[in-house]
């Protein structure tokens, strides 16, 4: 198992955001996490990436306990993520944003920077090439020199994706990657996510677009009020009474 959550609970001042959640994620899978607003999806991602500490339970990544490890250490183990409320380095160039994504795979420190050692230059060149090919992959190569914050919303999401990929993660957490995208854009992103999985990167996805979720997921987990209420293939989920009541049923009102 690549990722294992065992009995994870999180409470904020008595409010239970997550209650005894067990989730396993085998290598090479696309798993979606769905649930109504406030179900605890982002909190779950925060627990995995080290931004929130679980009050109970454990997080295992490649059989190593990473519970409560600071985010930079979690990242170094091979977990990258995107953010629901886009967290780009707004005043840096698109290129520099992706290059920061490769921080873990470069080593140069102060002396490398000052003396421009051959190792440092090689590393920078490789990182730059990698970043450029990733920007081509997400279709942002022509805005590489622009300020990240000046990109339109949909493109900022694509840039977050490119930055995530620059970390060459084993596991990529995507927090509502299609939010704010139009249909064409989200269809394109869906295809991209499939391609990323084919590269051998395991994907854990929080998503509201049912079309995206049902189209690409190998497995779907449903959270409601911090509790896992169902899990299975997209087909199984569509039929699950509890799920329809808690989630899809509620969706119809919109």
């Amino acid at each position: 198992m690549l990722l294992k959550l065992q009995g994870v609970s999180v409470s904020f001042d008595g409010l239970k955001a997550l209650e005894n959640v067990d989730i396993t994620l085998p290598e090479g899978m696309i798993k979606s996490l769905i649930g109504p607003n406030g179900a605890g999806k982002t909190t779950l991602f925060n627990v995995i990436s080290g931004l929130a500490k679980p009050t109970e339970g454990r997080v295992l990544f490649q059989d190593v306990d990473i519970t409560g490890k600071p985010p930079f250490q979690v990242s170094q183990r091979g977990i990258a993520r995107t953010f629901q409320n886009i967290r780009l380095f707004a005043h840096m160039s698109v290129m520099a944003n992706v290059m920061v994504g490769g921080h873990n795979h470069t080593k140069a420190g102060v002396s490398g920077a000052i003396f421009r050692t051959s190792g440092m230059r090689r590393e920078e060149k490789e990182l730059r090439e990698k970043a450029l090919s990733l920007l081509e992959f997400v279709g942002l190569a022509e805005c590489a020199a622009e300020e990240a914050g000046s990109l339109p919303y949909g493109r900022q999401r694509l840039l977050e994706l490119a930055r995530g990929l620059a970390a060459s993660p084993r596991l990529l957490l995507l927090d509502e990657p299609t939010a704010g995208m139009n249909l064409t854009e989200s269809a394109m992103l869906t295809r991209m996510i499939g391609k990323i999985r084919d590269l051998g990167i395991t994907i854990f996805l929080v998503e509201h677009h049912m079309k995206v979720v049902m189209g690409i997921s190998d497995q779907v987990t449903i959270l409601d009020h911090g509790v896992k209420i169902g899990e299975g293939t997209p087909e199984e989920i569509k039929k699950d009474e509890k799920v329809i009541r808690a989630y899809l049923g509620e969706k119809r009102r919109y």
């Binding site: 985010p71 993520r81 380095f89 921080h103």
Partner: peptide, 14 residues
């Protein structure tokens, strides 16, 4: 610069 722009995202990238 990443720390200046967004320390949380910076930490999440190692």
């Amino acid at each position: 610069m990443a720390i200046r722009e967004d320390p949380v995202a910076a930490a999440c990238y190692g």
